[in-house]
Design a protein around this nucleic acid. Structure first.
Lengths: 104, 104
DNA sequence: TGTCTATTTGGCCAAATTGACAAACACTAT
DNA sequence: ATAGTGTTTGTCAATTTGGCCAAATAGACA
């Protein structure tokens, strides 16, 4: 395995990876419009708050979102608006998939 | 776990996932400029050809790339040019990370 | 200080991903 | 038909990821 290539694309791939999960995409889409706290997001997604906390941490570590503590709550906001351009492209890919009959 | 959310973002997340690997990003960047065969790409990345074949298959199944067989060789091309916009955004994220001191 | 609320972290298990080797396969060309 | 070339697939071990519960932590406020 060529270590130079790995290194070159490691960070880029870790950013993709950080977004490559249904719950984390859900989070990104929610924060498009408004700030949310951890418990609120956990309730909406119907997952354990500890699991939600970990997903938020993943996105935060990659600077996709940012958290701001107000009193006892941490409110998260979308940090990288251009992430939404990703989605536009992703949807083009999805539409093309549908036209061609889906994957697998 | 809210199945509706999962369903909504499953496909989108599988597209991110398909690109979230250093070797597969390497492939995408190479195909930006020119067609390549499986063996060529395997040589460049210094990985087993079977491993490269599987990475190419992953990208192909998600319509990121397309393969065309000519004689005994399969040449791959980038199928979704807007993928490159992804990269532009990803790099903004990376640069912001660097400014702030990198991640973990 | 002590308590209450909200969030994060540790531990553990199940499931998914990655990589290599070898075997199978598809096709070309003798 | 047979050999040769290039690609894909079967299998398996090692690693990573995702989920929940329980315990730990951080901060607000009486």
């Amino acid at each position: 395995m060529n270590q130079e290539i790995i290194q070159t694309y490691q960070i880029e791939s870790s950013i993709f990876k950080s977004m490559a999960h249904p719950i984390r995409l859900f989070i990104i889409h929610q924060l498009e419009n408004k700030k949310y706290g951890v418990q609120e997001l956990a309730d909406m997604a119907e997952i354990d708050i500890s699991t939600m906390s970990r997903h938020l941490d993943t996105l935060k570590r990659h600077r996709i979102i940012a958290g701001e503590k107000i009193k006892n709550n941490v409110f998260y906001t979308l940090n990288i608006p251009c992430v939404l351009e990703f989605m536009t492209c992703a949807n083009k890919v999805i539409n093309q998939q549908n036209k061609l009959g889906g994957i697998i």
